[in-house]
Amino acid sequence: MSENPPPQQKPPPYAAPAPAYTRVTDEQREIWETKGRRGVGFGAAWLIGGLLLSLITYSNAASHGGVYIVAWGPVLYGIYRIVTGARLIQRARS
Rank of each mutant, 00 (worst) to 15 (best):
M1R: 07
M1S: 12
S2E: 07
E3T: 02
N4S: 11
N4F: 06
P5N: 05
P7F: 02
Q9L: 09
Q9C: 04
K10M: 11
P12I: 04
P12Y: 04
P12M: 06
Y14F: 07
A15C: 00
A15R: 05
A16I: 03
P19Y: 02
Y21V: 10
R23H: 07
R23M: 05
R23I: 01
R23K: 10
V24H: 00
V24P: 01
T25L: 08
D26S: 13
Q28F: 11
Q28E: 14
Q28M: 13
R29N: 01
E30N: 12
I31F: 08
E33F: 12
E33Q: 14
K35F: 10
K35E: 08
K35L: 12
G36V: 03
R37E: 08
R37P: 01
R38G: 01
G39H: 09
G39E: 13
G41T: 14
F42C: 07
A44E: 07
A44K: 08
A44C: 14
W46H: 15
W46Q: 15
L47M: 15
L47I: 10
G50W: 09
L51P: 01
L51H: 14
L51R: 02
L52P: 00
L52R: 00
L52W: 04
L53A: 13
S54D: 02
I56F: 14
I56L: 15
T57H: 04
T57R: 03
T57Q: 03
T57Y: 04
S59Q: 12
S59P: 01
N60C: 00
S63A: 15
S63I: 15
H64G: 02
G65V: 08
G66I: 03
Y68G: 01
Y68H: 13
Y68W: 15
I69R: 09
I69M: 10
V70R: 08
V70K: 07
V70D: 07
V70Y: 13
A71P: 02
A71H: 14
W72M: 11
W72S: 14
G73D: 10
P74G: 10
P74N: 13
V75Y: 03
Y77H: 11
G78N: 08
G78S: 04
R81F: 14
I82R: 11
V83P: 06
G85K: 03
G85M: 07
R87K: 14
L88N: 10
L88T: 15
I89L: 12
R91N: 02
A92I: 01
A92N: 03
S94T: 15
